[in-house]
Design a protein around this nucleic acid. Structure first.
Lengths: 120, 120
DNA sequence: TTACAATAGTATGCGTCATACAGTATACTA
DNA sequence: TAGTATACTGTATGACGCATACTATTGTAA
């Protein structure tokens, strides 16, 4: 049982891979800054490390999925990120694919509560 | 649009991470061999490379989630893998967490077709 | 003035996945 | 009988994202 939890952490980490990207993209149809995303996603049940998020944002911007601009007029300077047109495309496609993955998974994960006897 | 597809591949690859493990574990409540898993999962819409699966199986066995035995009585020798007790535990937990991830994601992914005006 | 929260950032290491191989034995075909 | 395709397992390598553990700065409250 303890062993199970040990490996679970790693497996779960892998499971969450990529979902962070979708989560982030999903919040950026309006400009938001990193720290807000961290707290925001946390509220929604998605934990993201700052050390994960900031490089992610930069990566996505570098790839052209996001655009950014500093806002220095507020109390503290914040870097706001926003979906680019490409980003919107990618986001849409990602969602479609995500849903297909979810569907495939539900096909594969055993149908609990409905024990099938046929073995076709 | 072309750029979008370029990055999509990588993002999707990341998305699928970990789901392969669950998929594999899901099929091993009864002993099965690698090649069968590849073709089997393919049918169910989950593509797994042999070069990914075999190391995965070995890894999972090494971690104690799987047990294996060679069957040399059939035409071709096959290595059969089966969930260990620990593996069953992990699998159960993985499913639970997976479902939570799916739920969190659906919270975050925009509610398409139902444009909300309130911003709570 | 001290201490904490807000905010952004970097460096490093691990782990898994895809790709590209190698290798053997059986079945099929000519 | 030779030759090719298929079944089947395996390894080596490289890419890349994530967690961890940091650094650094600036407001704000005590």
């Amino acid at each position: 049982m303890k062993d199970a939890n040990e490996y679970l952490d790693k497996l779960l980490q892998e499971l969450r891979r990529g979902t962070i990207t979708i989560s982030v993209l999903s919040q950026l149809s309006e400009p938001q800054y990193g720290y807000w995303l961290v707290t925001m996603l946390e509220e929604k049940g998605i934990h993201v490390e700052p050390g994960t998020l900031y490089p992610l944002l930069r990566r996505l911007e570098k790839q052209g999925l996001l655009e950014s601009k500093w806002d220095t007029e507020e109390a503290r300077p914040r870097k706001y990120y926003l979906l680019s047109e490409t980003g919107k495309e990618v986001y849409k496609l990602l969602i479609v694919e995500w849903q297909q993955i979810v569907e495939s998974m539900s096909n594969v994960i055993d149908i609990k509560g409905g024990k099938m006897d046929g073995d076709d």
